[in-house]
Amino acid sequence: MTFKLIINGKTLKGETTTEAVDAATAEKVFKQYFNDNGIDGEWTYDDATKTFTITE
């Protein structure tokens, strides 16, 4: 399955996707992406659209 990440950061904005077997696996991938890029904020997940959103 394809999961999308929408980034609404102070310095970084955009979208990316990842292929994962489930939302929990995608969450781990995206959290690592947050850490690697110094993004910290509030994030949500919409199961209907398989979209994670992080807002700094």
Rank of each mutant, 00 (worst) to 15 (best):
M1V: 11
M1C: 12
M1E: 12
M1R: 07
M1K: 08
M1P: 13
T2Q: 09
T2N: 07
F3D: 02
F3W: 04
F3L: 01
F3K: 02
F3P: 02
F3E: 02
K4F: 13
K4T: 15
K4Y: 15
K4E: 03
K4H: 13
L5V: 10
L5G: 02
L5D: 02
L5M: 05
L5A: 10
L5F: 08
I6V: 11
I6Y: 04
I6T: 03
I6S: 03
I6G: 00
I6N: 03
I6A: 03
I6K: 06
I6P: 00
I6R: 04
I7Q: 01
I7C: 13
I7G: 01
I7H: 03
I7Y: 11
I7E: 01
N8R: 12
N8A: 07
N8G: 03
N8D: 09
N8T: 07
N8M: 13
N8S: 07
G9Q: 06
G9F: 15
G9W: 13
G9L: 15
G9S: 10
G9A: 09
K10F: 12
K10H: 12
K10I: 14
K10N: 11
K10W: 09
K10A: 12
K10P: 10
K10R: 12
T11N: 11
T11C: 15
T11A: 08
T11F: 14
T11H: 13
L12Q: 10
L12R: 11
L12K: 10
L12Y: 13
L12N: 08
K13Y: 11
K13W: 12
K13F: 12
K13C: 15
K13E: 06
K13M: 10
K13I: 11
G14A: 13
G14P: 04
G14M: 15
G14L: 15
E15V: 12
E15F: 13
E15P: 06
E15D: 05
E15M: 13
E15T: 11
E15L: 10
E15C: 15
E15A: 08
E15N: 06
E15K: 07
E15W: 14
T16W: 15
T16A: 12
T16V: 15
T16I: 15
T16C: 15
T16N: 05
T16Q: 11
T17S: 11
T17K: 06
T17P: 01
T17C: 12
T17D: 04
T17Q: 09
T18L: 14
T18G: 03
T18Q: 04
T18H: 05
T18K: 03
T18C: 15
E19M: 14
E19Q: 13
E19S: 10
E19F: 15
E19R: 14
E19D: 09
A20K: 02
A20F: 05
A20G: 03
A20N: 02
A20T: 04
A20D: 02
A20I: 03
A20Q: 08
A20S: 05
V21H: 09
V21P: 14
V21D: 08
V21Q: 10
V21C: 09
D22P: 01
D22I: 01
D22S: 05
D22R: 01
D22E: 02
D22M: 02
D22W: 01
D22N: 07
A23S: 07
A23L: 05
A23I: 07
A23N: 03
A23T: 04
A23C: 11
A23R: 11
A23V: 09
A24Y: 09
A24L: 08
A24R: 09
A24M: 09
A24I: 08
T25N: 06
T25I: 06
T25D: 07
T25V: 05
A26D: 00
A26L: 02
A26Q: 00
E27C: 14
E27N: 03
E27I: 10
K28S: 09
K28W: 09
K28D: 06
K28E: 09
K28Q: 11
K28P: 01
K28A: 12
K28V: 08
K28H: 07
K28C: 08
V29A: 07
V29G: 02
V29N: 08
V29I: 14
V29D: 04
V29Y: 14
V29F: 15
F30T: 00
F30W: 03
F30H: 00
F30R: 00
F30K: 00
F30A: 03
K31P: 00
K31S: 05
K31Q: 07
K31W: 06
K31M: 11
K31N: 03
K31C: 07
Q32L: 09
Q32T: 09
Q32D: 07
Q32C: 06
Q32F: 06
Y33E: 04
Y33K: 06
Y33D: 02
Y33P: 03
F34W: 11
F34T: 15
F34R: 06
F34L: 15
F34Y: 14
F34A: 15
N35K: 14
N35A: 14
N35D: 14
N35W: 12
D36E: 12
D36T: 09
D36A: 11
D36P: 07
D36Y: 07
D36G: 10
D36H: 08
D36K: 09
N37Q: 14
N37G: 08
N37L: 15
G38L: 12
G38R: 08
G38S: 08
G38Q: 12
G38W: 13
G38V: 14
I39M: 10
I39K: 04
I39W: 12
I39D: 03
D40R: 13
D40M: 12
D40W: 14
D40T: 13
D40K: 13
D40H: 13
G41T: 07
G41V: 11
G41D: 03
G41W: 15
G41P: 04
G41F: 15
G41A: 09
E42D: 11
E42R: 07
E42F: 11
E42C: 10
E42V: 14
E42N: 08
E42A: 10
W43S: 01
W43T: 03
W43N: 00
W43V: 06
W43F: 09
W43D: 00
W43L: 14
W43R: 01
W43G: 00
T44G: 05
T44Q: 08
T44A: 10
Y45S: 00
Y45G: 00
Y45H: 00
Y45R: 00
Y45L: 01
D46Y: 02
D46C: 06
D46H: 05
D46M: 03
D46A: 03
D46G: 00
D46E: 06
D46W: 02
D46F: 02
D47I: 06
D47P: 14
D47A: 12
D47Q: 08
D47N: 06
A48V: 11
A48S: 11
A48L: 10
A48T: 11
A48W: 07
A48E: 11
A48I: 10
A48M: 09
T49R: 05
T49Y: 03
T49S: 08
T49N: 05
T49D: 04
T49E: 05
T49V: 04
T49G: 03
T49P: 00
T49I: 05
K50V: 03
K50P: 00
K50Y: 07
K50I: 02
K50W: 05
K50A: 05
K50C: 04
K50L: 11
K50T: 03
T51K: 01
T51D: 01
T51I: 04
T51R: 01
T51P: 00
T51V: 05
F52W: 05
F52I: 01
F52V: 01
F52T: 00
F52S: 00
F52L: 01
T53F: 09
T53Q: 04
T53W: 05
T53S: 05
T53Y: 09
T53E: 04
I54F: 15
I54A: 04
I54D: 00
I54L: 12
I54S: 02
I54H: 05
I54V: 13
I54T: 03
T55M: 06
T55H: 07
T55Q: 06
T55Y: 09
T55E: 06
T55S: 08
T55P: 01
E56L: 15
E56T: 12
E56S: 07
E56V: 15
E56D: 07
E56Q: 12
E56N: 05
E56P: 12
